[in-house]
């Protein structure tokens, strides 16, 4: 692709472009959520869409996650292709019953008669000083639930391309957008479109250790890899992209080559996604390992409000570098 085919954009604009394209491509698609219409979305993702598509397709909802997620599930059952936006994963707990007890189970409980083609987008993660009720990373909880597909776009191309593929999925898909990524700027091909949602991606090649991250931690892992390269340590960086189902093959193949792994997860360590990945590596690549699998996770505290404490609680490149050195013994 030549430079002429590239456009300057941001993660926020890429998500918006994805929603706009989906609305244009399929009249069954509509966007629903708190403040998505007149306000333009709490992270300004849907700004301008109300004017373009009208209130039938860009729907502001009452402040009840249980109600509007339930409505989205009902619409999906009725043949629509709703995109439901929840402001943050913390608020999604109010809709947990709808997501886990209804959306994820109906196909099973109806003996395959009813599928729920809903896509639920929500923001996740910390870094904006929004304190403990707006900053957590609970995507690992959703990744625990059979019946859901869980995505975590970490790049512009994935922000632009994952939604279309998710909408094609006959079953519920949850997309986690990390709050610190919305302002990320970069170039995207002008014709960027749908991308596969079932495969992890190797974002940097290396021979000494595999760093495994996703969403908000991908950038930090890449930053750590750059720092390590200055010391002659070549880290491979795997972007999980999809948190459920995990792409075991890509993870195992990379670790089998580098023989060391460090998982970087903004969720908490205990019972988290990083534990699952570590277990997978143990099950599939134990005899390939040269060191115990390392983990860099968020400190086991509610995310603090003060900036310095918030930053101290989160996985940072320096901690990743230290964890890598521990696996190498240098």
């Amino acid at each position: 692709m030549s430079a002429a085919g590239m456009v300057q954009t941001t993660y926020r604009e890429a998500v918006r472009a994805a929603i706009r394209a989906a609305l244009k491509a399929d009249e069954r698609v509509f966007l629903m959520g708190e403040d998505v219409g007149r306000y333009g979305g709490c992270y300004a993702v849907s700004k301008g869409l109300l004017a373009e598509f009208g209130p039938e397709r860009i729907r502001d909802t009452p402040l009840s996650e249980a109600a509007f997620v339930g409505a989205g599930i009902g619409a999906a059952l009725g043949g629509m292709r709703p995109i439901v936006e929840i402001m943050t994963v913390n608020f999604s707990l109010l809709a947990l019953d709808q997501i886990v007890n209804t959306a994820a189970t109906l196909l099973h409980m109806s003996g395959g008669q009813f599928n729920v083609p809903v896509v639920i987008r929500m923001a996740t993660g910390a870094g904006r000083q929004l304190a403990a009720q707006h900053s957590h990373s609970l995507e690992g909880w959703y990744a625990h639930v059979p019946g859901l597909k869980v995505l975590a776009p970490a790049t512009l191309a994935d922000a632009r391309g994952m939604l279309a593929t998710a909408l094609e999925d006959p079953n519920p898909v949850i997309i986690f957008e990390h709050v610190m990524l919305y302002n990320m700027a970069g170039e995207l091909t002008a014709d960027a479109g749908a991308v596969p949602i079932d495969k992890a991606a190797v974002r940097r090649l290396g021979r000494d250790v595999t760093l495994i991250g996703y969403g908000g931690t991908l950038g930090k892992a890449l930053e750590a890899a750059t720092a390590l390269a200055a010391d002659g340590i070549e880290a491979e960086v795997v972007d999980l992209r999809t948190l459920r189902p995990l792409d075991t093959a890509t993870i195992v193949a990379s670790v089998a080559r580098t023989r060391r792994a460090v998982v970087v997860d903004e969720g908490w360590r205990t019972g988290g996604l990083s534990a699952e990945i570590s277990a997978l590596i143990m099950e599939h690549a134990f005899w390939e390992l040269d060191a115990p699998v390392g983990r860099v996770c968020t400190a086991e505290v509610p995310i603090p409000y003060p900036r310095h404490l918030e930053q101290a609680a989160l996985p940072q490149p320096a901690a990743i570098v230290a964890a890598v050195r521990a696996t190498l013994g240098r």
Partner: peptide, 15 residues
């Protein structure tokens, strides 16, 4: 088949 990951449901026998 498009590039699809193999998600092993069963753990292969441990070496």
């Amino acid at each position: 088949e498009p590039a699809r990951p193999a998600v092993a449901e069963a753990t292969p026998p441990m070496p």
